[in-house]
Structure formats: structure tokens, C-alpha cells
Amino acid sequence: MLAVQVLDLRKRYVSFRRRGLFSREKVVVEALKGVTFDARKAEVLGILGPNGAGKSTLVKILATVLLPDSGTARILGHDIVEERREVRRLIGVMLSVERGFFLKLTGRENLKYFGMLYGLSGSALEKRVQEVLREVGLLKNADKPFEEYSLGMKARLGIARALLNDPEVLILDEPTLGLDPVSARRVRALIRSLAKEGGKTVLITTHNMFEAEIVCDRVAILSDGRIAAIDTVEDLKRKVADTVFLEVRVSCEHESSILQALRSVYSSVTCRREGPASRILIPVKVNEYEHTLSELLETLRRSKLKLRGIAVREPTLEDAFVKIVGER
């Protein structure tokens, strides 16, 4: 049985914009336009998408806190609308890193409160709270008020709450958003171990391509309310494998001259500043690579500007993402 099955899920938001004192205009935003995908057991499925693609709407619907307009979604065979209570016993949810707890209460007190709401009590509750605190590495800080927690600790407490009912499916909305690299790495390792050692299915939304590459078994790219692609990271990269990138590094002061010289030859040149240097990327078809490289070297030689380096870069998940999202 699949852990998550989503079929033609649709959701639109209707709001009204005031126009003058007595009239108002109906505004309809179609957040999901027929989303279909599935997730297997013990799999980490990443949901990637640009802002406004519908990621948060999708996870809120799967988390049973928002009703869809049409379509179906099943968690371990249970319909998220018709069997909402049963689904809630099977899922653990984290929809925000920063929010979702009482500020004055300690981490432990917060977890106990939610544990009680979810039906735990007595020694079973105490034991479970202790277990999840240990699992996320928060035992030492369990009795500090939530308002004194760092963002990384808040994220881990959010995951601890999601684990309270020992769920089979975890739904995490941008669990590393705003975290420093050390905290983010810790959260990623935790997610990975929950899936691989704990056998849990994890649905995770993220903007972070690096994170998706190292955490997710498969990635679904959501664009404009639809799944534009779903595959393993490697297979998604292969979709843009007909393209490699020639990367030219120059100091910032020479950036505009080199860009001008290159743009007169190549149509889609992009440039990104990184400290005192600039990275210029030129997408090249694999079969034109050798010819383009010698042409590029000649162009750069003629410009007589000082280079910091030149390299050939394989496509990344970000390239695949940009290509897939950009194509729609």
C-alpha cells in the first residue's frame, strides 16, 4: 500500500477586494489545479516549488487542517476528508519552524499539552514526551521556556510534537527555514534517520535545492498549482543533461566588460556575485561543448581581461528546477 496517494486535488481561495464604499470585487486564486502524485512507505518525498506554487496549501490539505475543493487524497488508504480522525492518528505535522507553541510554557509543558490533546495521558504521556525530547536532542533544554529557544531548537521541538503520536507519515513544511547551517544539518539528519531507521514516510517542502538533494529520495516539483515533474534527484538532473555550464570567474571590477563581450556572442548568460568575485554561467548543449569552449577562450583572450578561473559544471537540481519551472 502507498503511504500517500493524491489524485487531482484542487483548491481555490476566494476573497473580496473592496472597491469604494459599497462595492467589492471577487478575487479568486487557484492554489492547486489538479495535483496528482504518490509517496511510498519510508520514503522522503520533497515538494519543491517557487513562491505561490501551492506547496503550503498542499501540505495543509494533507495535514487535514484545510479542506480541498475537489479531488482525493489518502494517507495509508484513509481518505483525508471522510476519515479525518483516523488520518490524524497516522500523521505528524509541522507547518512552521517559529510558531505553534505557547511562549511562556517550557518545551516539555508544551509537548505535554499537545500530547494530552492527542489522547495521551499518565505515565504513557510522560514516557513519550521524554522519548521524543531525547530523539530530537532537546532533553537538556526541555525545561526552558519556548520563548528562550533558538530557531534550531524551535524546529526540533516542532518535530518532537509531530512525533508525539508515533505517526507513520510526517508532513513537514520547510523544516529548516531560517536555520543556521549547523542546526539545519542536524534537522536534516533527523529527518533522514526518521525515514531510514524509523520507517516513516516524510513529506517535506523546501526551497533549498541542496537540502532536497541530500535528504529526499524523490522530488516533486510543484509549479503554478500542478506537479510539473516528479522523480529522483538524479533523474530530474538527467532531464537537463543535454546542457552543461561553462563557468567563468572574474573579479567584480571586470564583470561588466566581460559580460558585455560574452553577451555579444551568447544569448543566455547569467551572472551571480559571490563576495569580491563574479560567477558567469553560459549554458551550452553537450554536443556543442568543445566548439563553444574554444570559442569562449578565444573571446576571453581577445578581451584581455584578467580571469580568476574557468570551469565546466554539471547540471544541478537547481538547474533542473529552473528549467522545469521555467518551461511552464
Partner: peptide, 18 residues
């Protein structure tokens, strides 16, 4: 505003009851 209500509403009860 605290974001707590979302998680409270995941309990197997109606929100008004909670």
C-alpha cells in the same frame, strides 16, 4: 496568532469542543 490553533485542531475533537 501564536500558530497553536492549527495543531490543537489536529486533536480528534471539534475545534469548538477543544
Amino acid at each position: 496568532l501564536l500558530g497553536v490553533l492549527t495543531y490543537a485542531s489536529l486533536a480528534p475533537h471539534r475545534m469548538a469542543e477543544i
